[in-house]
Structure formats: C-alpha cells, structure tokens
C-alpha cells in the first residue's frame, strides 16, 4: 500500500531539478513541476489527489444528506424564528475552517468526549470536519434555490394535499439540477480548505495528506514552485469536476424540461 519514501524523494528532487533548470525561462514554467509529477504518474501525488477527492466527496455527500433537506425545510416550512434560523445558517457559511477543525479536534481528541472512537488523525476525522464546515453552505444555497421553486409549487402541492415531508422530497427532486450548484459550492469549499483538515488530519504522509496540506507543507519547506504547481493541479481538478457537473446539469435540465 505505502510506496517507499525513496521513490517520492527521488521524484521530488527530480522535479526540483527540472523546475530549477527551466525556471529562468519564465515564471509560468514553475507550474510544470507538479504537472511533470502528474504526467510521470508519481504515485505519491496520485495518492494525495485520491485522498483529497475521497475526503471532500464523502464530506459533500454527508453534508448533502443533512443540508439539502434542511435547506428545503427552511424554504417551505413556516415556523416562528424561521428568519432567525435562515440568518444563522447563512452566517455559518462564514465559519473559519480552523475553528471547525479545532472544535472537531477537541471532540475527537482522546481526552475529548468522542476520544474513544480513536479517529483523530485519520481521513474520517477530516471527513467529519469538512462535512460540518460545508453543511451550512449547502443548506443556505439550497434554501435560496428551493424558495424560488416553492413559490411556484406551494399552491399546487397544497391542493394535492402533499405533506411537508412529501413537499421536501418534491422540491429536492424537481430542483435537483439547480441544487448541483449548491453541492459544487460545498465541494469546492471542502476541496480548497486547509485549516480544518490539517488540524484534525495531522498532514500525515501517505495517510492524511491532501492537496491543500501538501501545498502548506511544500510552502513551509520553501519549495514554492512545487507548492504553486500543486495548487494549479488542484485548480485543474476542481475545474474539471465543475465542468462535468455543469454538463450534467445542462443535459439533465433539457431532458427533464426544467429549463
């Protein structure tokens, strides 16, 4: 499972040599170092990318399971304090990742209330932290999207005697393509954040190192070209995922007649 570290050191030095050799030709060429690793199939890099995607996608899935119904409820259920709840969820979108990381850290620490789980410094802890971080984002954006749809649907569903739970399900299903935007926003935030995962994951080589924590590490090692290159690779991956999601949305909307 674990690659010998000598391999990554070798490729890292190779990358460094390549980067240095071509540096004088222009700043933009520094990006090549990370892409070089990508092209040459550097296993350490692929493991990092894989973990980043695994953690962020799983966190997005969990956050969606909680955030989407929550957003739908906030959109359609009229209750006392709804505006306060909406303001609160919107405000939570601005939660600093470090704070979330710290809270999860204290929760999962062996000396904390959930310490017996023993999952601090594992990918699971990172998933939990990211899920908490992005649930309010998904809920708030979903509420916004679904509130518009609810204005259209409210009377029809009332005339069909549809229950609250049924209305939530209907909004989520019929709004599914627009909700992709909310999911992407959550995923993007999860992918991009470093503060929470580095605190609860520990940036352990080959185990909890993600794109962002690797970038932080390379920065602290003074290998700025590699850090920027990794950042560019991350950007490319996120762009690719967004492009795929938009393609799905466009096609789906056309086929379902939502557009």
């Amino acid at each position: 499972m674990n690659m010998p570290a000598s391999v990554c050191i070798f490729s890292e030095e190779l990358t460094y040599a390549v980067t240095n050799a071509i540096k004088f030709r222009g700043v933009e060429i520094v990006f090549l170092s990370a892409f070089w690793m990508l092209i040459t199939g550097d296993p350490a890099l692929y493991r990092i990318i894989g973990l980043s995607l695994y953690v962020s996608l799983t966190a997005t899935l969990i956050a969606a399971l909680v955030g989407l119904p929550l957003g739908a409820l906030l959109a359609l259920k009229e209750f006392r304090g709804r505006i306060a709840a909406v303001v609160f969820v919107n405000a939570l979108m601005g939660m600093p990742p470090v704070v979330v990381g710290l809270a999860v850290f204290l929760l999962l620490s062996r000396s904390g209330p959930l310490g017996s789980l023993g999952i601090l410094f594992t990918p699971r802890a990172m998933i939990i932290a990211q899920a908490i971080l992005i649930t309010p984002i998904i809920a708030a954006l979903a509420r916004q999207t679904l509130a518009d749809l609810w204005v259209q649907y409210r009377d029809e569903l009332a005339a069909m005697n549809v229950s609250t739970a049924g209305s939530v399900a209907t909004l989520l299903w019929d709004g599914r393509f627009s909700l992709l935007t909310a999911l992407l926003a959550g995923f993007g935030r999860a992918c991009a954040e470093v503060g929470a995962v580095i605190v609860v994951g520990g940036n352990i080589d080959g185990f909890t190192r993600t794109m962002t924590t690797a970038i932080a590490l390379e920065t602290s090692k003074g290998d700025l070209p590699l850090a920027i290159g990794l950042g560019a690779v991350l950007l490319v991956i996120v762009i690719a995922i967004n492009a795929i999601a938009w393609a799905i949305r466009r096609t789906g909307e056309r086929l379902a007649g939502a557009a």
């Binding site: 674990n2 010998p4 520990g202 940036n203 352990i204 080589d205 185990f207």
Partner: peptide, 20 residues
C-alpha cells in the same frame, strides 16, 4: 522521517504516522 520510516516498516511491518 521519509528516510527512516520505510526502513522501519520493511523490518517490522509497522506503519508510522507522523504528525509534525
């Protein structure tokens, strides 16, 4: 650690996870 851990792992099979 990048140098030490593979040697230790080869000998004992133990994964060492370093939090720096």
């Amino acid at each position: 650690f990048g140098h030490l851990l593979p040697l230790f792992k080869a000998k004992t099979g133990i994964d060492v996870r370093v939090v720096s």
